[in-house]
Design a protein around this nucleic acid. Structure first.
Lengths: 338, 338
DNA sequence: ATGAAAGCGCTAACAA
DNA sequence: TTGTTAGCGCTTTCAT
C-alpha cells in the first residue's frame, strides 16, 4: 500500500511465487500458468505495484530515450518538428528529451550528458549547420539530421523539406504571373536550406531564360526585421523588382510592412511570397501567399528513421525530402503593365 | 578503447585500484590521494570511460529527470514556458521530457509512463484545467501548475500570469482613452486564466462606475477565427462597442481582420487590444496594442519551484503571479467623438 | 511452468 | 586513504 514503492519481490512474496514469475507476468511472457498469473495480478493490484523503469533500463541495457537538440524550442517550425517527433517516438515506446542548444558549447555539453553518458540512445539534430555543431557529434551516435543534408557524414540519416523544389516552384509561380524582375531574400548561407532555396530560385530563372541579377538577391537572417530592411534596399535600386521570393514567411511579413510604410501596394505594385505558412500568415495585410510545409510530418518521419536505425530494421542511412504546397493568397498577383 | 563501453571496473583494473576508488574519483570525493587520482584519471582517459547515467540513477535512486505535460508543444506561449523551464532545469543538473498531451487519455498514460514508473521525479503541468486532467495526478507527485491556480490541491505549487491585474490594466487603459462601451472576448471559461481575465475586466469597469453590459462579452476559443466571428456578432448589436479587450493576441488579430473586411477603421472607429505580445504582433495592420507577458520567466520560475520542492529546500507550496507590461501600438486610440 | 542464480554498472556502508 | 561487501529492481540464463 506504500504508494507504488513495492518491488517485484514484494509482489512475489504476497503471491507466493518467485520474483521471476512476477517478472514473466509483467512482461506478458506466455509461459505462465493462467492461475498463477491471476494470483500475481491480484498481488500487483493489492500492492499498487508498478515496474520501475530505471531498473528495467538497467537490466535491459536500454533507456528507450531519445534526445532532440534544437537551437531553440519556440520557433514555430522547430516546435512543430519536435511535436511530431515526440508523438511518433512515444507511439513506439520511446521518450524524448528536447533541449535547446543555442550555442556550440551547450550543444557539446548536451551530447556529453545525454548521449555519451548513455541516457539517450539516439539523437535528432535540428539545424546542424547553424554553426560547427555537426562536428561535435560522436561518430557512433545514431543520428538523424532534421532540415539539412548530412553532407560528408555517410552514416547519418536526414529529413528535410525539398528546398530546391520548393524554391523552384515558388519562383516559377511568380514567373507565370508575368514577373521577370524577381528578387529573393535569403536565410544564412551556412544552412543547407538557404543554399538549396537559392539553387531552386536560380533554376527557375534559368528554366525560363531569365538572366539572374545579383543585385536582386539580398542576404537575410530569417527575421521580419531583415525582411523589412531588405525591402528598403531593393527599392533604392535603379530598377526595382516587381516580385519578391522570401525564403521564409517572417521575412516576407517584414517586407509587407515595409511596403505598406513606403506606400507600395501589394500585390498591384509588388508581389511578395514566403515559405512556411506560419499560423496567422493569412491574417496579415494582405494575406500572405506562401509555400506551406508540414513540419509535423518532418518530425514524424525523422522519428521513424531514427527508430528504424536503432532497431536495426534499417542499416544504411536514408534521406527524405518532403514537398511543400503552394498556398495562393492576396500578396501575389499578375504584373500590372502600366 | 571500445568506444565508451568500459566500466568502472575496467578503469579500476587498469589503474590497479578498487572500483570504489574510481567511483570516488568520478564523484569528486575529496578523500582520495592525489597520486591515486592521477592514476585513475589516466586510466579513464585511456579507456575513454564515461559514467553510465542509468546505473547511477539506479544506485542513487534518483533519475534527475522531470516531465512537462502540455496540451501541445507548438503554441508560442507553451513553447516559451517549456524553453524557460528546460534551460533552468538543466542548470540544476536535471533533464526535461516535454510531452504533448492533447487528451486526458494521453495525459494519464504519460503520468503512468513517466511518473508512476519513476522515470521522472516531478511534473510541470501546463494548463491543468483544459479538461479533467488535473484529477489524474497522483497525490504524491511533486507538481507545479503553470498558468493556473492549484485550486483545492494544497500541495501543488503554481506559477501564472497575474491575469486579474493584467485584464484590469488593459481595461483601465481603454477606459482612460475615453471608451465606455468596451467589449471582451474570452478564452474557455474552464481555464482559470479566462476566469481571472474576466474578473479583472469587471473590476476595471466597476472601478470606473461603468455598468457592465453582458451582451458585450463574447465566448471565444483563443483562436483567430473565434475573434473574427466575435467581431461580426458585436457589430450586429444595436449599439456596438468602441473598444475591445481580447483575452489573447490571436483573437485580437482575428478581430483586426474582421474589422478590415467590414470597413471599420482601427483605431479611429474601434480600438482593439490583446494579451501576449506574440512574435510579429507588431507586424499586423495596425500593429497590435497588447499586454506583454514573459512566458520564459514563467517557465524558469516554475522550474525553480519544482526543484526547490524536490530538494526539500521548500516544504509548503508556493504561488507566483507574474506581471505583464502594456505595449502601446496603433490598434488603440482615443475615442473619436463625431 | 516455475525457480535459483547471476549480473546490469554503479553507490553506500562499513571495515581495514 | 583505500578496499570489501551489499545492494538498487529488474532481466536473463539455466535448471528443474
Amino acid at each position: 500500500m506504500s504508494h507504488s514503492r513495492s518491488t517485484i519481490r514484494d509482489v512475489a512474496a504476497l503471491a507466493g511465487v518467485s520474483h521471476q514469475t512476477v517478472s514473466r507476468v509483467i512482461n506478458n511472457n506466455e509461459r505462465v500458468n493462467p492461475e498463477t498469473r491471476a494470483l500475481v495480478e491480484a498481488a500487483i493490484e493489492e500492492l499498487g505495484y508498478h515496474p520501475n523503469a530505471i531498473a528495467r533500463s538497467m537490466a535491459r541495457g536500454r533507456t528507450c530515450t531519445l534526445a532532440c537538440l534544437s537551437p531553440n524550442l519556440t520557433d514555430f517550425t522547430f516546435a512543430s518538428i519536435i511535436e511530431g517527433a515526440e508523438a511518433e517516438v512515444r507511439k513506439h515506446g520511446y521518450y524524448l528529451v528536447s533541449s535547446s542548444a543555442p550555442t556550440e558549447e551547450e550543444f557539446s555539453q548536451l551530447i556529453e550528458e545525454l548521449f555519451t553518458s548513455r541516457r539517450a540512445e539516439g539523437l535528432f539534430v535540428i539545424n546542424p549547420y547553424a554553426d560547427g555543431r555537426h562536428n561535435l557529434l560522436p561518430p557512433a551516435a545514431p543520428t538523424v539530421f532534421v532540415g539539412a543534408r548530412p553532407r560528408q557524414r555517410y552514416t547519418v540519416s536526414s529529413v528535410a523539406l525539398d528546398d530546391i523544389s520548393v524554391a523552384r516552384q515558388a519562383t516559377q509561380y511568380l514567373i507565370e504571373l508575368g514577373h521577370r524582375r524577381i528578387a529573393m531574400i535569403n536565410g544564412p548561407m551556412a544552412e543547407d536550406c538557404s543554399q538549396d532555396r537559392c539553387s531552386g530560385y536560380e533554376q527557375a530563372l534559368q528554366d525560363n531564360s531569365i538572366n539572374p541579377d545579383p543585385s536582386l538577391v539580398i542576404p537575410g537572417y530569417w527575421t521580419a526585421t531583415s525582411g523589412y530592411q531588405a525591402l528598403q534596399e531593393l527599392f533604392e535600386l535603379p530598377s526595382s523588382p516587381t516580385a519578391i521570393f522570401a525564403q521564409n514567411d517572417r521575412m516576407a511579413i517584414g517586407m509587407l510592412r515595409a511596403a505598406r510604410e513606403k506606400g507600395i501596394t501589394v500585390p498591384d505594385e509588388l508581389s511578395v511570397m514566403g515559405v512556411d505558412d506560419m499560423p496567422l500568415s493569412s491574417y496579415f495585410d494582405p494575406p500572405l501567399t506562401t509555400m506551406r510545409q508540414d513540419p509535423l510530418s518532418i518530425g514524424r518521419e525523422a522519428a521513424r528513421l531514427l527508430i528504424d536505425t536503432l532497431e536495426k530494421r534499417q542499416v544504411s542511412s536514408k534521406h527524405l525530402l518532403l514537398q511543400a504546397q503552394l498556398i495562393q493568397r492576396q500578396s501575389t498577383g499578375p504584373i500590372i503593365s502600366s
